[in-house]
Amino acid sequence: MTQGLRERKRAATAQALAEAAFGLAKERGLDGFVIDEVAELAGYSRRTFANHYPCKEAAVASVAYAGIEAAADALEDVSDGRPLLDAVEVVLRLQLTTAGLSRMREVLALARAHLSLAPHVYHVQHRMRLEVEERVAAVAAGRYPASYLTLLVGAVYGMVSTALEGLVDVRLPGDPPSRDAVEFDEFLTEVFNHLRTGF
């Protein structure tokens, strides 16, 4: 499922625009900039922006999508001969980097502060989940029932989301020390122990 040159260029342009919008949103708040400023900062025209995003909220939310293609490719690379749950765990540990997790948290915090952003964040999260599920199904190659795949991806996604949304006190590297917080690596271990053995 490797992307062609045109798709890679399009994805790079979309990511540059998303990064610019996200940076401006963090610096000024969602109401503190306009689309023209996003396009100029990223080095593109307003028309190019419009070819990728319907509004600045969509661009800000899309910054969380970075790395999903790499994560999906990594799943294909590690899955041979492994139980599917083990393959998913390896990929999560490789792809959920400190920078990526911190960025997702920042996007969610922005969405709480600016309600117009929330639907766009949910849309991106839904897109990410569907793409991962599609890749998991391709890797599983008929070895598991379709309902198992949907439940597996939903369970993993839901449990990790609790940490990103602050529903579980999970400490990422770089976070201030907290007596009650669980380190993210320990949290992932707990997640996959529950998935293997139940609750």
Rank of each mutant, 00 (worst) to 15 (best):
P173L: 06
E106W: 06
R129H: 08
L151A: 12
S147W: 13
R143C: 06
H114F: 14
A118E: 08
Y144S: 04
E131D: 14
Y157F: 15
R105E: 07
L130F: 15
L117F: 06
V160L: 10
M159T: 08
Y144P: 01
G142L: 03
L172V: 12
S147G: 11
V170N: 01
V139L: 02
R105C: 03
S161P: 08
R103F: 05
A109G: 10
A140F: 04
R171V: 13
R143V: 08
Y144V: 09
L151E: 04
V107R: 02
L167D: 07
A155G: 14
D175G: 13
P173V: 03
P173I: 04
L130G: 13
V124D: 03
S147F: 14
H123Y: 11
A137T: 13
L110Y: 03
V107T: 08
Y157M: 09
L130P: 13
M159C: 10
P119V: 05
Y157Q: 07
D169L: 15
A109T: 14
G154T: 09
A118R: 10
V124F: 01
P177D: 05
A118Y: 14
S178H: 15
G174K: 03
P176Y: 08
L108R: 01
P145W: 11
A113P: 07
Q125M: 15
R135H: 10
A118K: 05
A138V: 13
M159H: 04
V153N: 01
A140H: 01
S147R: 13
P145E: 06
L151V: 12
R171P: 14
D169R: 11
Y122I: 09
Y148T: 10
V153K: 00
L108C: 08
L164N: 04
S116D: 09
L149P: 00
S116P: 14
L117I: 04
G154L: 09
P145L: 11
E131A: 07
A146N: 10
V139K: 00
R135K: 15
A138Q: 14
H120A: 12
M128W: 05
S178C: 11
A118G: 07
V136I: 15
L152T: 06
R112A: 11
V121P: 02
V160F: 07
D169G: 08
S116F: 12
R129T: 06
V156W: 00
A111F: 05
L151T: 07
A109C: 07
M128V: 07
E134G: 10
G154D: 08
A113T: 07
E131Y: 12
L167M: 08
L151M: 13
R129F: 07
Y122S: 12
A113W: 09
A140W: 02
M104D: 00
D169P: 13
S178P: 09
T150Q: 14
L164G: 01
L117A: 02
R171A: 12
A137R: 03
G166I: 10
V136C: 09
S116L: 15
G174V: 14
G174S: 04
T162Q: 11
E131L: 14
A163L: 01
R103W: 09
P176S: 09
L117R: 00
M104N: 02
G142T: 08
H123E: 15
R135P: 00
G154F: 12
L110P: 01
M159V: 07
G158K: 05
A141K: 09
L172P: 01
L110R: 01
V170G: 03
G154K: 04
V132R: 02
D175V: 02
L172I: 08
E133W: 06
R129N: 08
